[in-house]
């Protein structure tokens, strides 16, 4: 069974690198990085390919602008997925998808997946690290009319069937679905590999193809307006306790907590 697997990869804003203008988050100057759990999606796809044969295709949409200055950055994200073992990449780049929203992005990606055609399995991360909407997989499955398995922490394929263990609040649910299907994986599904230098270099020879919405034959989809994006300011004292030794550090910490009135009374 030579598999045809699509992995959805997002070039996300990096929440560790917040840039601001006053209270507003300045998204335009924040760096992009591969969304943390999309690495688990790529890893899951590559592992299945290694086991069953086939190919892994990266499918992505650029959802943060300014598009003119983002090309190098998002290509770097896509190349990282290619270096991990994916074979080729297809990316929607269109002003109408910026800033991203799952309502619009899902339509663009579903259209792209349909155009490319013939996927046995589409794998996504459980949520993106910037917007954390956790909708894309479900929406794409609904648009494509195929089964969807969310929050999978284990994933196996056999005989045209995908079996997954869903990690839910109260328990683990094992489910089976006929292929083709869409699956979202959790951050615990695997340990994403870190590509070697050779793999990174080789990734430069793998093709990345770009599409506009017009190329996909769809109109600009509607989406909610992002009216405001404000940074949440937390003021902390940021006192590092300096001490000669651990005993003194412990004493100073205890004194500080007593001063703050947060220790139970002796």
């Amino acid at each position: 069974m030579a598999l045809n697997i699509a992995v959805l990869v997002k070039a996300s804003l990096d929440p560790n690198m917040i840039r601001t203008r006053g209270d507003d988050v300045d998204t335009d100057s924040m760096p992009l990085a591969m969304s943390e759990y999309d690495k688990n999606a790529v890893e899951a796809g590559v592992q299945l390919k290694e086991k069953h044969g086939g190919r892994v295709v990266v499918v992505s949409a650029l959802t943060w602008g300014p598009l003119a200055k983002r090309q190098r950055e998002y290509e770097q994200v896509i190349r990282e997925a290619l270096a991990m073992g994916a074979d080729e990449a297809h990316v929607v780049v269109d002003e109408a998808l910026v800033p991203g929203d799952p309502l619009a992005t899902s339509k663009a990606l579903a259209a792209l997946l349909e155009k490319l055609g013939g996927f046995d399995l589409v794998i996504t991360g459980e949520a993106s690290m910037d917007m954390i909407s956790s909708q894309l997989g479900a929406r794409i499955a609904a648009l494509l009319g195929v089964p969807f398995i969310s929050y999978a922490r284990r994933l196996e394929l056999g005989d045209g069937v995908v079996t997954a263990v869903r990690d839910l609040e109260d328990g683990y649910s094992t489910v089976r679905a006929k292929l083709p299907a869409v699956v979202s994986v959790t951050g615990e599904a695997n340990k994403p590999r870190i590509p070697t230098l050779i793999q990174i270099r080789r990734a430069f020879r793998k093709p990345i193809k770009k599409y506009s919405l017009a190329d996909l034959g769809i109109e600009a989809p509607s989406k909610p307006r992002l009216e405001e994006l404000k940074v949440i300011q937390v003021k902390r004292k940021n006192i590092i306790i300096e001490a000669e030794n651990l005993e003194q550090a412990a004493e100073k910490l205890i004194e500080a907590l007593e001063r703050e009135g947060v220790l139970p009374k002796a």
């Binding site: 309502l103 909407s133 909708q135 969310s150 609040e169 909610p224």
Partner: peptide
């Protein structure tokens, strides 16, 4: 998790925006 999943499907079916 289950309701996030189910509501996203409903939203896709009816072209609804969804706020997670």
């Amino acid at each position: 998790k289950n309701l996030t999943d189910a509501l996203a499907r409903l939203s896709a079916r009816h072209n609804l925006p969804m706020f997670t």
